[in-house]
Nucleic acid binder design. Structure first.
Lengths: 257, 257
DNA sequence: TAGTGGTCTAGACCACACG
DNA sequence: GTGTGGTCTAGACCACTAC
């Protein structure tokens, strides 16, 4: 039994509880896979209502420390982290997964011809007013865990020519296997919390941070070949790069306030 | 008044409410800066308890769509997004901010000599067993909004020599001004939800996704000069890069299952 | 059947902002 | 003082798991 006064430093009690449990998990007092006491029991231990316990647990869920299973309990997560090199933009997903000891799999959700959204038209440098593109959504699995949702747009001709293989494999590998080489890419990385729809696709809790990898890849003659984005579970993925730092233009710095 | 039956597609009602409000915000029915109805009034509108409304609002907060002010109300966020180039690792923070029309400022939280953590020792290639490093934590502001917490480790000699300027300016600018050039860096990007401590430093809601930019920067002779990480609000920041894709080793692909 | 987490209610008290 | 959001309670019903 922990008295409520112990948290009386302005910190809400559900935060206090959450951090107590977090420490127990990180020090190994609760091991990966182990079941935590039920919400009811935790309420008794800390002397608070179930609502407060649930708020504390919600925080642990969002930090990827535990997962819940209805009817079963709260379980400590077995941590994973897969790193992807930005130099071989996510298209190399399968190779990176294999290198790090995971089996990989793709599930194509849709593959259809649509009117190109303006942003896609710009990125793929499509000039025709009513240009169409193939729109693909697929899920990437690592050892049967869905870790990313990929949204890709292909120019009409590419999508038509490679319709079957593109629906069965990873973007990059498939393009390369079919003689389409990518020489450069413009990428950006941001992060968003999982919306309800995304949380269902990726089987993650609502609000879990997702990494968003936006890309436009160019082939021969700097012609854009493909664009899209990969939304991946932030508790499973990270992106790495080795960069050459340009010698700075000192005049820019001098002009700073 | 919206009847609860409208959400009866298995979707929890707080999700339904959250998405209704989200749509109103994104279509401009609620404009940036505008106040939403109070939790009490929203409860009446949707015909649910305040608890359910609060859960819906929590989701909007986490998506960065609204902010709450105790005693005042719920306000639609004015969206911002600042992009940083990975080629000039975050050290160029000040220049990027200025370029995009923001004023920048640094607040140094601490600057002290400590026993080097093992990870830092490895990254800075320190061989001495009891090597010490300067540990700095500072907050980056854009127009008086705290957008990032930077944690930097300097080798003892560097930190000692540049103690004063480092406590007043941005890492990169200060080093360059003092003749220390950075030629390359190893970086990685991941994302975590804001912990309670971080949420207080950055004045963000608990659980808001943060981008974590880890870096080790090298100077002349590939000598590590500085390492650390920058944790930035994901609703304000994104990282961009232009990458050259290495021609893939086809044999690797052939070996894939 | 008993126990678990998921959802929701109705109400309480507090700290804070504003008139 | 009134209204606001922040926290917390005690309890309800449900869906699911396990025995």
């Amino acid at each position: 039994m922990v008295s409520a006064e112990q948290a009386a430093d302005g910190q809400p009690f559900h935060i206090f509880i959450s951090e107590q449990l977090k420490e127990k998990i990180e020090t190994g007092a609760y091991e990966p896979g182990e079941r935590l006491p039920s919400e009811f029991d935790l309420g008794a231990v800390f002397g608070v209502s179930r609502t407060t316990i649930r708020k504390a647990i919600a925080s642990l869920i969002q930090q990827g420390l535990v997962t819940t299973q209805r009817g079963k309990g709260i379980f400590v997560t077995d941590p994973h982290k897969i790193s992807f090199s930005m130099a071989n933009p996510l298209m190399y997903f399968d190779a990176a997964l294999k290198q790090q000891g995971y089996t990989s799999r793709v599930q194509s959700l849709r593959f259809q011809l649509i009117q190109a959204p303006v942003e896609v038209k710009r990125q793929l440098a499509l000039t025709h007013n009513n240009a169409q593109v193939y729109w693909q959504e697929k899920i990437y699995y690592a050892d049967d865990t869905p870790i990313a949702l990929d949204v890709t747009y292909y120019p009409e001709t590419t999508g038509e020519a490679l319709a079957e293989p593109l629906q069965q494999g990873f973007t990059y590998s498939t393009l390369v296997r079919n003689g389409i080489y990518l020489h450069a890419a413009k990428v950006s990385l941001e992060s968003i919390p999982a919306t309800y729809e995304l949380s269902e696709y990726l089987a993650v809790p609502l609000g879990l941070p997702l990494l968003v990898f936006n890309y436009v890849a160019y082939g021969d003659n700097r012609q854009p070949v493909v664009c899209g984005k990969t939304l991946s579970r932030s508790d499973w993925t990270c992106y790495t790069a080795e960069v050459e730092v340009n010698h700075p233009d000192l005049s820019v710095l001098e002009n700073l306030p």
